[in-house]
Design a protein around this nucleic acid. Structure first.
Length: 691
DNA sequence: CAGCCTCGAGTTCT
DNA sequence: CTCGAGGCTG
């Protein structure tokens, strides 16, 4: 009854050979056998496993074609967090990194003048994953997720020919980390197929890789030709690894048949780092895959340990990013948009152009002066960049190209309502004087009123406001509270369900705190912060409306300009009418919670301190983090200065983190923040409670 | 009065 | 995120 031993041996042999051939073919690009021979062996193994199911095994190459679809992805906790790297955008930041490394190592007795040995490698533009091998067999493959827990994508990762299913090691457990990416050639091929099938093309290889890895059906992933490069080993006990340096560790992984970058190098000191960066930069376009920079790591593992970690990033490594990608395109037109305050903003309409991974068609030109400074004319070829890698920006006119002839002139009449345009002496911004007579301003005012930070009316977006205003159903925020299902019926994309949801959202907004209502009114120069201060100081809309200038000036942040704006707002008959109508419609702002008055100094690590948030935190949104800090009596501001007590940095933290370092401001990660928040509210001094 | 610190406002794309 | 400008401080 027991299976003939020779069949089992044959299966083992076939698997080993097929894996070796696949590695040679996909990873080394040097096939050992003809394709036909590979196919023959593959079929033999398949037949063997089908006729003897007890021979089947998760580490078999036959598994690479992908199994049955999953319902969803399981969450996997990372034993060691998957950290992100600090970024350097220029040579100075790299120099500072090298200096910090030498200083850090000097504390452990090393000569601070001696050049440090670094490993350098390309920074792949893909997705970080972790592969766990138990007893030499790939057991779990997970995405990075928030760094602490990711998604179990084992079934999908098994389909990648570049990832070994079984490795030759006696380590009971090995966790290898690396990047899943799609090479450009495979990306082109995939898009050609998508195009043929009339399906959506992917914007860039990174998106294609991400989309392919997150398929619930592994058979789809199998058809996508994803690749993998290993770049780290995660182990609590680095001493147990058979290598003392990062470079040697990568060599060891290569020996286990993991693909490792052929571009990696070991270099010495700052000069070595910068030379490597320039070398890779020059060859960037010739590489078979996209990269967005290079990564430097202190090579010696014991030195890495000495340096340790700051907040969520290792101190021994840094990513040196390439400058924001630029592209040339034609400036088709300059249109003028009208904002909530009537501000006229010139917007560049561009021939669609691919920059830094997305197609850009619009870019703000800020104001008239900006257009003049950049000397752009309609018809020009312009240089477009994604500033801070997000918001598109017209850098200027492309040199050596025929110039366009369309000179931009700020219109003297509002393009929406035809009112006069005024630009006060000394101000950069031209404004429509139409006020709420202007449909554009009315729409923007409504959108502002409904926005998340104001009255938070979910579902009231641009499309809907356009219809409501154009159809004459809504003129002021007060009109929103008079809407009923009939008024909404017949609008585009507005079924019964959506209508009910919208009405419920409007209903719910009646009891928002006073500070939000004050902000929602859209008084010039009164933003969120000032609105809150005003709400606290006056306690009701009536009191605010009746306030004398000298009372207003008592409020922090309020000077003569803002005091005037507030008085001017309430002096307008129209505004008083809207406020009366709002109150009559049942808008009843909740009384403001009184802030914890100063608390006892030192009673909390939060109260009275100033925080700046940057980057993406693992579990909190920016608003949530801010709410927690404010609830604990702390303050959140937007920019880092000497007065900042803490910078809370998440992933992809940029310039603010840099500035925090420059100024020596303390940096926390989310865990550090929670720790400090945790002390808050817990009576850690029993008997000392004063309430 | 200068310079710093904040706040407000506008904006892209998926 | 970045710019412009109001408010505050030395």
């Amino acid at each position: 009854m027991s299976l003939p031993e020779e069949l089992r041996a044959r299966a083992v042999r076939l698997r080993a050979d097929l894996e070796r051939y696949a590695h040679a073919y996909y990873v080394l690009d040097a096939p050992l056998v003809p394709d036909a021979e590979y196919d023959r062996l593959f079929s033999e193994l398949e037949a063997l496993e089908t006729s003897h199911p007890e021979l089947a095994s998760a580490d078999s190459p036959t598994q690479r074609v992908g199994g049955a679809p999953l319902e969803g992805f399981r969450e996997v906790a990372h034993r060691l967090p998957m950290l992100s790297l600090a970024n350097a955008f220029d040579d100075e930041a790299v120099q500072a990194f090298d200096r910090r490394v030498r200083e850090g190592l000097a504390a452990a007795g090393r000569d601070p003048e001696a050049a440090v040995e670094y490993s350098a490698e390309p920074k792949f533009d893909g997705l970080a994953v972790s592969l766990t091998y138990i007893g030499g067999v790939l057991a779990v493959g997970a995405t990075r997720g928030d760094g602490h827990a990711g998604e179990d994508v084992t079934a999908n990762l098994r389909t990648l020919p570049a990832i070994p299913l079984r490795i030759d090691t006696d380590r009971p457990r090995l966790e290898v980390r690396g990047e899943v990416l799609m090479r450009r050639r495979d990306f082109e091929r995939l898009n050609a197929i998508q195009r043929e099938r009339g399906e959506r093309e992917f914007a860039n290889p990174r998106n294609a890789a991400a989309g392919s890895l997150r398929q619930l059906d592994p058979r789809i992933t199998a058809g996508r030709r994803l690749f993998f490069y290993a770049y780290a080993v995660a182990d609590e006990d680095m001493d147990s690894l058979p290598a003392r340096g990062h470079g040697a560790l990568m060599d060891w992984l290569a020996g286990l048949r993991f693909p490792v970058s052929a571009e990696r190098a070991r270099v010495r000191g700052l000069d070595g780092l910068l030379a490597y960066y320039r070398g890779i930069g020059a060859r960037r376009d010739a590489l078979p895959y996209d990269i967005d920079g290079v990564v430097y790591k202190v090579d010696a593992l014991d030195e890495q340990r000495t340096l340790g970690f700051v907040s969520r990033a290792p101190r021994f490594a840094i990513a040196h990013k390439f400058p924001a990608q630029e592209a040339l395109t034609e400036l088709l037109d300059i249109e003028v948009q009208v904002g909530r305050t009537g501000a006229l903003t010139p917007v560049a309409r561009l021939a669609p152009v691919f920059v830094g991974g997305v197609t850009v068609t619009n870019a703000t030109l800020h104001n008239e002066d900006e257009v003049r400074r950049k000397e752009v004319r309609i018809g020009d070829t312009v240089v477009v960049r994604r500033a801070g890698d997000v918001i598109p920006e017209v850098v200027g006119v492309a040199p050596d190209r025929p110039r366009g002839s369309g000179l931009f002139v700020m219109p003297d009449r509002c393009p929406v309502c035809g009112s006069a345009v005024s630009r006060p002496e000394g101000e950069a911004i031209a404004r429509c004087t139409g006020g709420l007579f202007c449909a554009a301003q009315r729409k923007q005012a409504l959108l502002h009123y409904a926005s998340r930070r104001a009255m938070d009316i979910e579902g009231l977006g641009e499309k809907l406001v356009d219809q409501l205003v154009d159809g004459g159903r809504v003129r002021t925020p007060a009109d929103l509270y008079r809407l009923d299902p009939q008024a909404l019926a017949g609008l585009e994309r507005m079924g019964e369900k959506s209508a009910a949801n919208l009405l419920a959202a409007i209903e719910a907004s009646r009891t928002r705190p006073l500070s939000r209502l004050v902000f929602a009114l859209g008084i010039r120069n009164v933003g969120e912060t000032t609105a809150r201060d005003l709400a606290r100081a006056f306690g009701s809309l009536q009191a605010l409306g009746a306030a004398r200038e000298e009372d207003l000036l008592q409020v922090p942040e309020v000077g003569p300009v803002i005091a005037q704006a507030i008085q001017g707002f309430f002096a307008e008959a129209h505004n008083r009418e809207v406020i009366d109508a709002l109150l009559a419609a049942g808008v009843a702002p909740r009384a403001e919670a009184v802030p914890p008055p100063g608390a006892t100094p030192g009673a909390s690590a939060i109260a009275g301190r100033t925080f700046v948030l940057t980057g993406t935190l693992p579990t909190l949104t920016r608003d949530e983090a801010r709410a927690l800090i404010e609830a604990a009596g702390g303050k959140v501001t937007g920019s880092v200065s000497r007065k900042t007590d803490f910078v809370v940095a998440g992933e992809e933290a940029g310039s603010k983190l840099e500035r925090a370092r420059e100024l020596g401001v303390a940096v926390l990660d989310e865990a550090g923040l929670r720790e400090r928040l945790g002390g808050q509210g817990q009576p850690d001094a029993p008997g000392g409670a004063s309430d």
